[in-house]
Design a protein around this nucleic acid. Structure first.
Lengths: 118, 118
DNA sequence: TCGATACTTAGCCTCATGGCAAACTATTCG
DNA sequence: CGAATAGTTTGCCATGAGGCTAAGTATCGA
């Protein structure tokens, strides 16, 4: 995980387009050729290919060319980056809640616990 | 939830910038004024304000001006959109796994189960 | 081998994004 | 009141994203 922030830039950018999200969705069902994917979208092939390349450049899919057909496969693990980021934000929130709770209850405790309410 | 896809466009776009993600992170600790936020970033105020407006326009933060100070507050719920989207993708994957499994086991079952292995 | 198929490459266009400086407005403080 | 503070508005610029057409390459199938 060389450059976490730049990776997030790329993943979020890739997901910020409805065409690309639709491709991700479609590939969730299984590998598909560029041509088959493209049929579902109202744009020319070269335009569509840019989206494919963007997804690939940002690690969300992998593609292989066999003969004249390029097949796309979803790289599910890449979406963990989004999950991890969300988890990180929520951790921040819970730390804040912890501090607030310590203040309210007047207790001082270690901060590495997960949850101390029964 | 009027336009789910357009909302996702906006949320992902807003999160695709490191400055804006840093603001989200910072606001996770609690409300902060624009000025205090801006200090952490190597850009002019007007430039920074654009990021604030982008975050606000896409519902990730809310801001209120009191006197000459504008205070920003994180809108945590908005991140649920990302969570929901991820969950949707994973549901697609699991449906595919279900079909594959039915094929392998030769069984035909209802598809609304969570998990039928003991 | 020749035509159809499945991308690719190249070049061009338009609009959106992110950044800047300069000037302006509205509050607050001494 | 008058100066400092905290944003805001305006206008400009460079880059990149997303779309197109036209032409090129590499298989595949008869």
């Amino acid at each position: 995980m060389a450059n976490y922030s730049a990776d997030l830039d790329g993943v979020f950018t890739a997901l910020a387009d409805p065409t690309r999200r639709a491709v991700v969705r479609r590939l969730g069902h299984g590998p598909t050729s560029v041509g088959d994917l493209a049929e579902a979208f109202p744009m020319t092939l070269p335009s569509f290919m840019k989206h494919v390349r963007t997804l690939e450049a940002n690690g969300l899919i992998r593609t292989v060319k066999t003969g004249r057909v390029r097949t796309c496969v979803l790289n599910r693990e890449r979406l963990d980056l989004v999950d991890d980021w969300l988890a990180g934000e929520r951790r921040v929130w819970s730390e804040r809640t912890d501090r607030l709770e310590r203040f309210v209850t007047g207790r001082t405790e270690r901060t590495d616990r997960k949850d101390d309410r029964p």
